[in-house]
Design a protein around this nucleic acid. Structure first.
Length: 424
DNA sequence: TCTGGGGTCCTAGGACCC
DNA sequence: TCTGGGGTCCTAGGACCC
């Protein structure tokens, strides 16, 4: 049976989340910033129209922001994560097989619906998500994931499509590919696009029709797969259960530069706690921990420094206090006086199933006891607020904490931040 | 002054082994 | 004088994604 994939993608997702709870932002220019209020990571159509590019540092567009009265918000991941769950729950009703691809996108397997009018079905999905969650989405339908992406891209831009486009067995497919720049094809980034442009390949259609051997030589097997997918040959199936993580990272920029070992250690301790929580949520244990610290690498004026330390653990663990010991020893080792640190992070690798940890003859830790302690620890923090119980190593004042100066309320997950409505 | 965070996969080259 | 070849594993770096 020939496959049919749909890609459902939330429009300007973070901005749309803000608008659901603050309708006065509708039709206003709105942008949402990355961590530490650094870069623009979500833009309303009005902001796109005035030329603010994705990922630009906000200080570089300050004039545009002022001139057009752009409303700026910090990231509110608690809110976006919760809204994402609502959207995904809604989508799951429309297909037996779904892959949650990112916080704002999901692929649906619609192969079983091939006899129906897929555009109408896409319209139903589109309208239902809007009605049930308030979030506007676009629906693209194609014979491969890459073509569903193509359809989605056009659905989002074309006013005629109205947010839904079906490109399965469509006489319009060739034209659609011709209208699409090669850089907008899923799997083609700036590096590939440059190589292609140098050889005169500008559109998705030219890429589809390129010579296999040449593609393999120039872009490798990854590039060739994308080309096959443009030709309706499925290379990427639906991944319905999320694969187990191979690594876990927790890294952050500081709200203001850190110079002392004490504060640097506090931040690393705090990132270690977060990484360890992620580890336990997936029932994993880490065999390797890496700590890195760095100054501002953009600045030419300040002295720059980057260093990292990797430690192989004698026995893989998910115990926070054990990981803290290694992390804090590592940060002491790579800390240098006299630098203004801007960022630090903790990476956990060699992850294994917590219940299949290879023991060590000289291991002196009571692991079943430590596991029980961590279970209670996580339970309390999930029932109460995060960090209700915490390790003293993460400090109290945390002056280095990442900036979120313009964050909206966490409307859907905190009683004290509920939306209030007044009837007049 | 001010530049995010968290992932995946592939490949080339070196080390090592027989 | 004549100095192999093939396989595996690991790592760093580069590409991509959101």
């Amino acid at each position: 049976m020939k496959k049919v994939f749909a890609l459902v993608d939330c429009n300007n997702f973070y901005v749309s989340c803000e608008r659901v709870f603050n309708p006065s932002l509708e039709r206003e220019p709105v942008a949402v910033l990355s961590n530490n209020d650094g870069c623009v990571v979500a833009r309303s159509n009005e902001v796109k129209a005035i030329g603010v590019k994705m990922g630009v540092p906000v200080f570089k567009v300050r004039d545009l922001v002022a001139a057009y009265g752009v409303q700026i918000y910090s990231s509110n991941y608690t809110l976006y994560g919760d809204m994402s769950r609502r959207v995904m729950r809604t989508l799951s009703q429309f297909s037996p097989e779904m892959e949650v691809y990112s916080i704002d996108e999901a692929f649906l397997d619609l192969s079983g619906f091939a006899g129906r009018n897929l555009t109408e079905y896409g319209r139903l999905i589109h309208d239902t998500v809007r009605r049930w969650t308030g979030i506007p989405v676009s629906v693209g339908i194609g014979r491969t994931k890459t073509l569903a992406k193509v359809a989605n891209h056009i659905a989002k831009k074309s006013s005629r499509a109205g947010g839904v486009l079906d490109l399965t067995d469509s006489p319009y497919l060739g034209h659609a590919l011709e209208s699409m720049r090669v850089i907008d094809v899923w799997g083609v980034g700036p590096g590939f696009a440059k190589k292609l442009r140098n050889c005169g390949i500008e559109t998705a259609r030219q890429l589809r029709d390129a010579d296999d051997k040449w593609i393999l030589k120039t872009l490798g097997v990854v590039g060739l797969r994308s080309v096959y997918e443009l030709r309706e040959r499925v290379c990427y199936g639906l991944e319905t259960c999320p694969p187990v993580n191979k690594g876990i990272a927790s890294t952050r920029s500081f709200g203001k530069p850190v110079e002392s070992l004490e504060q640097l250690s506090e931040s690393v301790a705090s990132y270690t706690c977060r990484a360890a929580e992620k580890l336990r949520r997936q029932n994993l244990a880490a065999g390797v921990i890496t700590v890195f610290v760095m100054t501002n690498l953009f600045s030419d004026k300040q002295r720059r420094y980057f260093n990292s330390e990797t430690v192989e653990l004698p026995v893989a663990t998910s115990d926070t206090s054990e990981l803290l010991n290694y992390a804090l020893a590592a940060v002491r080792k790579i800390y240098r006086k006299g630098y203004r640190f801007k960022k630090a992070g903790v990476l956990l690798d060699s992850l294994v199933d917590q219940h299949k940890v290879q023991g060590n003859l000289f291991d002196s830790v009571d692991r079943s006891r430590s596991r029980k302690i961590m279970q209670v620890f996580d339970r309390i923090n999930s029932l109460m607020e995060p960090d209700t119980i915490r390790y003293p190593a993460i400090g109290l004042g945390q002056p280095w904490k990442t900036r979120f100066q313009r964050r909206s309320p966490r409307y859907t997950t905190r009683w004290d931040e509920l939306l209030s409505v007044r009837a007049v």
